[in-house]
Design a protein around this nucleic acid. Structure first.
Lengths: 195, 195
DNA sequence: GTCTATACTGTGATAGAC
DNA sequence: GTCTATCACAGTATAGAC
């Protein structure tokens, strides 16, 4: 029934609103229910509990992340430098445009909660997409990819944590890509650098 | 009185034990009190509440972090490469040797809680120490330092989050230092690269 | 199928007796 | 100082009204 899905969507929207206002764990089910004109127990008709609501939020964020990465890699850029810059910019844009969502997706900030495999799947697909895209530009090897992910996540983490709303680490993206590419250029055999 | 400080220390040790067993937010004050042979309200004689306990844990971890950085930078190494490697290794060692402590110090993982300025002070001093140490090796400029912190925190974060107990990103430290130094070598004017 | 009232357990925190 | 008792609030389970 469409009615049920509409109510689920309304609950999720209210949950995102509350998360932006008081933090991911700063609201109770009674508050959330109040936002959609219900009492707390009624929420259990639509979600199995608060964790299930977090999981649905994670799933939505995960799909948005995949879309963002897909959009950044889907252009018709041909040179590696432009492709890497687009990918890294997309990640930083995604992180800074909604720090709460970034926190939910990429930091383990909810006590004792972990996303389900289903909710996580799009994020995994986004990683695989990045991997194949880098490979298409001749960049492969686990060590190189790991250095790449460390660079990307490091910039995003520092930006969100230490300069929210600013561009202090965002402005380093082009430098970071240059640095990474010069590393790739000087190490030919992907995984045999330090065996 | 020494008795009071001894009890405080016993409570903190029990808190660390519990944090390692069930996570930073996975234990209650009743459990914690039980570990030291008390009832929960008695803890309030020694700490103002759970947040104050987290703050004392943060302060201890912060001091340990400063000691680790001081130890890494205090050697008599003269060349920048060795110094940077020592610093980065120290950070990764610190992160992997106690992921719970790392989580408390470097990830905002406790809902609505922030460390006090006093508890944070040693961490600030560690950052300043790194900054002056890099400057002593001719590496200065906010952009370069920001790229350095992004690299360090990115490697540590990825290691702890995606390969706990392993060395997948730990093994990239030397590469990361090489990459960073080649960047430093190709950009002469620190902060005027992209004004 | 939706929603409510009610209540159970556990939490951090407080008040006051001893 | 340490206790018991209690509070307000949390997430959640159940029973039942419509």
């Amino acid at each position: 029934m469409a009615r049920r899905e509409a109510t689920r969507a309304a609950i999720l929207q209210a949950a995102w609103d509350l998360a932006h206002e008081v933090g991911l764990t700063g609201f109770s089910l009674r508050e959330l229910a109040g936002r959609v004109g219900m009492r707390a127990p009624s929420l259990y008709e639509y979600f199995d509990g608060k964790d299930a609501i977090y999981d649905a939020m994670f799933a939505a964020g995960s799909r948005e992340f995949l879309a963002a990465i897909r959009g950044a890699l889907g252009g018709d850029v041909t040179d590696p430098r432009s492709a890497l810059r687009a990918a890294m910019h997309a990640f930083l844009d995604f992180a800074t445009s909604d720090p709460v969502r970034f926190q939910l997706l990429f930091q383990r900030s909810i006590a004792g909660w972990e996303p389900s495999a289903d909710a996580y799947a799009p994020a995994v697909e986004a990683y695989e997409l990045s991997r194949t895209s880098l490979a298409a530009h001749g960049i492969s090897g686990r060590r190189r990819l790991d250095l790449w992910t460390a660079l990307v996540s490091g910039l995003a983490h520092q930006q969100v944590a230490n300069d929210p709303g600013g561009t202090r680490w965002y402005d380093l993206v082009d430098d970071a890509v240059d640095v990474f590419l010069s590393h790739v250029g000087t190490t030919t055999d992907p995984d045999a650098i330090r065996p």
